[in-house]
């Protein structure tokens, strides 16, 4: 029982991280029906911006520098997200180009970011400075670290903020309108292109933060680190029901927990296979995901 609880706590941190990335996938899918394959690489860029800033700062462990590391990672990944949308997707989206073209652009941008990273930083993993000195706490026989606690709590906090933005701001309402019916919202005067930019910015900011979190938790980073978590977060989004923000949160946590339990009770080599298995099962059995609405294709 204790082992089980211990694994649940370990899984929560990964779950939160997956959820943060998955939200970006699901929001973009909601407003433009595109799987933004480059999203995992935005997450990688966040981690590397964090690395560069952390190495520049003199006093690495002060709360201010921790804050600065997160803030700069968030800032630059937001910028990158907006840039990707502007330069990559917008012209195609305006032309109403086939979705195949959008997907190819997504793959190309992802390759561009990965190989630029490889060129700049090399393929060897880099260790991330310990900007939050780790402490362990015991509750009974269960151990958890301050880092796990920080990750879980900040994930919950960020999701709360996101919920407020999406449900209670003008931009959030516009986002929901575009996701509901893109054409109609444009007719009613919703500035769709600004909504797209905003959606990419929001998703990328979360991915950037998730990047630093993984960098602290892992604690090694390399330019290809976005591939697998990106794919898994996408699977989490599908599991929760793509297009649904609460779905992405639930999907992220479920996948994180499932992975940790599988590697604890079966074998850690099954860990990466599990996500793909989940994907196939969801697509076959419940394609709309856990919380998604069953959509009938419109004529």
């Amino acid at each position: 029982m204790n082992l089980f609880l211990q694994q649940l706590i370990n899984g929560l941190a990964w779950g939160g991280i997956y959820a943060l990335i998955a939200i970006g996938y699901t929001m973009v899918y909601g407003v433009m029906q595109l799987i933004n394959f480059a999203h995992g690489d935005v997450f990688m860029v966040g981690a590397f911006v964090g690395l560069v800033i952390a190495q520049l700062l003199p006093d690495k462990t002060s709360p201010l520098s921790v804050f600065l590391v997160f803030l700069s990672a968030m800032f630059f990944s937001t910028l990158l997200g907006i840039l990707i949308e502007r330069l990559g997707y917008r012209s195609l989206w305006r032309k109403n180009a086939p979705r195949l073209s959008l997907l190819i652009v997504a793959v190309a941008i992802s390759l561009l970011l990965e190989n630029s990273g490889l060129l700049l930083f090399g393929a060897a993993p880099r260790s991330f400075p310990e900007i939050i000195p780790s402490k362990s706490y015991f509750v009974g026989s269960i151990i958890f670290t301050n880092l796990q606690l920080i990750i879980i709590l900040s994930c919950l906090l960020l999701m709360g903020i996101l919920h407020l933005i999406v449900m209670h701001t003008k931009m959030g309402r516009a986002m929901r309108a575009v996701a509901e019916d893109s054409e109609m919202s444009a007719l009613l005067g919703v500035p769709r292109e600004r909504v797209l930019s905003f959606t990419f910015a929001l998703g990328s900011a979360l991915a950037g933060i998730a990047g630093v979190m993984v960098a602290l938790y892992a604690p090694q980073i390399n330019p290809l680190m976005g591939l697998l978590p990106g794919l898994k977060a996408f699977i989490a989004a599908v599991l929760g029901g793509i297009g649904s923000i609460p779905g992405a949160m639930v999907g992220g946590f479920v996948l994180g927990e499932a992975e940790t339990l599988v590697s604890a009770y079966l074998s850690s080599s099954y860990r990466d296979l599990l996500a793909f298995l989940v994907l196939i099962l969801v697509l076959l059995l419940r394609p709309q995901g856990l919380l998604g609405k069953g959509v009938v294709e419109k004529l």
Binding site: G88, S91, L92, A97, S101, I104, V105, V107, A108, I109, L111, L112, E114, N115, S116, L118, L119
Partner: peptide, 23 residues
């Protein structure tokens, strides 16, 4: 030393240029 990365960068840019400018 980095020719593999440069090759992929070249491919990715080419892919992007074609899809955006001459789909």
């Amino acid at each position: 030393q980095n020719k593999e990365f440069i090759r992929m960068l070249f491919f990715a840019s080419l892919l992007l240029i074609f899809i955006l400018l001459r789909p």
